[in-house]
């Protein structure tokens, strides 16, 4: 009987450890690590980035309900009734917290309601019901004294990345590129008027050299005279980073879209709206991790902000566009790749 209780305690400890390690890997700016910075040294596993989004999203909820159930069972004990009551009670508790994150987040500003969390909670609850009912019972103690501390532990450990814009955290306003702007008409700029701002990838095709201006567009140069390369045209394409060419068609990305440009129309000046095509929402957007300073969070929704951008989640702004930067304390725009 005692061993059953110790097993529950050990499993609870194990789950707490797994949850903690998970948070270190995925939510390194979590409030806990501001208080205990040495925990940051345990951040090692970028290979975990390859986990499916569903696991990354749902695992904390799953771990939490299992952890609290085991801990409750270890402290209170398990009998036939408690084997049902404990998992269901924590399911209710966690669902309530999850529900509080719904909408524009007035109750729990920092959290984000996620259907995957609900599935993870239901799964966790089912697993715990199964384990408790299959496992033996253990001697129970009156639970009245333990409920309050357990709830406190439950609430603390469920905080996850729930923090708000206050001391130590700078919350900034996003700069948003609307989908309308992103997908506005592409028009080549001829002549030598557009400077190369941020040199990116290069591609050579015959006597023509293509140079990506990161996140801004593509410059086209005639390099037949290697000592005097001349700019033929500049193609402004928001979010461009990549190039490949076959025959007279250029393939590039425009943030989430795959764009095809008919180069012969660029070169002979007959470029029009039929000279290019745009495949929408083909690629994942870049992560804001790459350009946001430590302890700064960009609002991803009204009244909310990025705490942790899951690695391929779209930094979308209320469905209106893409977060491409933020306005810092000095009122300056800081953009992805500093594009203008």
């Amino acid at each position: 009987m005692l061993s059953n209780r110790i097993t529950h305690l050990l499993l609870a400890g194990f789950l707490l450890l797994v949850g903690l390690l998970f948070y270190i890997q995925f939510r390194p700016t979590h409030i806990l690590f501001e208080i205990l910075p040495w925990l940051q040294t345990l951040h090692w596993a970028t290979w975990l980035n390859g986990l499916p989004i569903s696991v990354i999203h749902g695992l904390p909820s799953f771990l939490h309900i299992c952890f609290m159930s085991f801990l409750s069972a270890a402290l209170i004990g398990v009998n036939k009734r408690l084997a049902t009551v404990i998992p269901l009670a924590w399911l209710g508790f966690d669902l309530l917290l999850e529900w509080g994150q719904k909408g524009s987040g007035n109750l729990m500003q920092a959290g984000v309601f996620d259907v995957l969390d609900v599935f993870a909670l239901l799964l966790g609850c089912a697993v715990m019901l199964l384990i408790f009912h299959l496992g033996g019972s253990s001697r129970t103690v009156p639970k009245s004294l333990l409920v309050a501390p357990l709830l406190a532990i439950g609430l603390t450990t469920s905080l996850g990345s729930a923090i708000t814009c206050n001391d130590g955290y700078e919350c900034v306003t996003p700069v948003v590129l609307t989908f309308e702007e992103l997908r506005s008409e592409i028009q080549p700029v001829y002549g030598n008027t557009s400077p190369l701002v941020r040199p990116g990838k290069i591609y050579a095709h015959g006597q023509t050299l293509y140079v990506v201006d990161q996140y801004r567009g593509i410059h086209i140069f005639d390099q037949s005279d290697a000592q005097n390369p001349s700019r033929i045209a500049y193609l402004p394409i928001f979010g461009a980073l990549e190039i490949s060419i076959q025959d007279s068609l250029l393939y590039t990305n425009s943030f989430s879209d795959l764009v095809v440009i008919n180069l012969s129309h660029v070169l002979d000046g007959s470029f029009n709206t039929n000279s290019y095509s745009r495949n929408e929402d083909v690629f994942a957007l870049p992560s804001t991790y790459e350009f946001v300073p430590d302890n700064t969070y960009v609002t991803s929704k009204k009244n909310q902000f990025f705490l942790d951008i899951p690695f391929s989640q779209r930094p979308e702004y209320e469905g209106e566009g893409i977060v491409i930067g933020f306005i810092n304390k000095q009122g300056e725009e800081v953009l992805f790749g500093e594009f203008e």
Partner: peptide, 22 residues
Amino acid sequence: GTGIGGSTARFTIQKNHLITIE
């Protein structure tokens, strides 16, 4: 009819297929 990119490219065309990596 393809050209040539640098070694850090993430797009390439082979056998009339565009292959991309994210």
